[in-house]
Nucleic acid binder design. Sequence first.
DNA 1: CTCGAATGTTGACAGTGGCAGCAACAGGGA
DNA 2: TCCCTGTTGCTGCCACTGTCAACATTCGAG
Lengths: 207, 207
Amino acid sequence: MAKPRVKKESYHHGDLRQALIEGAIALISEKDIGSVSLREVARQVGVSHAAPYRHFADKEAMLAAVAEEGFRGLQDAMQAQVDAHPNQPLQQFNATGQAYIDWGLEHPAHYQVMFGGTQGNPETYPTLYKTAGQAFQVLVDAIVRSQVAGKIQPGDPKQMANVAWAMVHGMVMLILAGQLSPQQSAELSEFGRRSLLYGLAQQPSPE
Amino acid sequence: MAKPRVKKESYHHGDLRQALIEGAIALISEKDIGSVSLREVARQVGVSHAAPYRHFADKEAMLAAVAEEGFRGLQDAMQAQVDAHPNQPLQQFNATGQAYIDWGLEHPAHYQVMFGGTQGNPETYPTLYKTAGQAFQVLVDAIVRSQVAGKIQPGDPKQMANVAWAMVHGMVMLILAGQLSPQQSAELSEFGRRSLLYGLAQQPSPE
DNA sequence: CTCGAATGTTGACAGTGGCAGCAACAGGGA
DNA sequence: TCCCTGTTGCTGCCACTGTCAACATTCGAG
């Protein structure tokens, strides 16, 4: 077969780095995280098994890039809900939380990579933590607006966002781990968000 | 001591299965989860690399057993707090949640095995899910007692326990993943539990 | 005591992450 | 135009892993 003289088919790939990330995401969405190898990703992209090392220090670094892409997607999903409810801060807060849960359930393996991997120190992959922080900020902002509107008690919005994040994150994790049945998940998230919201709306008393 | 035959260097180990689980836990507590291999566990126990296959179908099955052991430890830690606060259901609920968080932070890799692994269907490792359910039950019971004492609103205690579980689980995960600083964690857990508790204590209104 | 069932061992295989060294480009002086 | 240097990709190799099959040793029921 005659080879097209297209530049994409040339010796150099063009944008291997991005192609690898997308290939990895594609593979991850079909299989589970553990059974995806660097070599298989390379194969999927049509490149030799050592080529990825020109773009990533090691496998973990590549997964970190995949995770980063995930946080971007997560942020977009949340931001879309904010935009969908202009001037309704509490609705934004609510819908943001639900969007978070939905995204996690729709991208189980990807979600796993975002949190299960790279334990520990943020210094290892600074851009990853920056991206994650930006996604988190969407939540914080929604809380601040709710406070301004008097729908949520005054107090450190970051602290509150942390609590809310822990809650939705925990739900996603438990459902993905099979500890909670999927059908429970809908009403659970409804119930959970309402309970938490009610707590945040008031001034919690020490006793 | 105790224990079955410590006959000097006998061909048969005596209780390899349990030794492997403990060896794996020991290794896991030093290194991270990803870098622990079946062969290394076998080496640690002083047995050949294929011996574990007489007791576990594969690596995943062994990690499931490790996870099971973890849930037992977690349950013990929670139950200890229940026993430490007799006739004080709300305190029990509170202390149980804190004990959960503490245990998770003290056994990061083990905790990871308990949740990060074995995605999906409970049928694969039924005893694992049974054990996890028993740990969960400690929480449910504390909530039921709190309801009887009128400290928490009526309603499905399982649902409430799910929410509480998601919350503490999310906190542990986020802290372990480095998304939350450890020093934040103390006051965060305090704040979070209080917010949630306040929400659960009241009847959440639909709006 | 005998013999099958458990349990442990050795050896092999394919697949993996990672490294070193070679090969094919790209682009900029001369 | 030609060479030259840096980038990117390739092939080959290594140690190691999970897993299986065949063999060895021991236990325990008969």
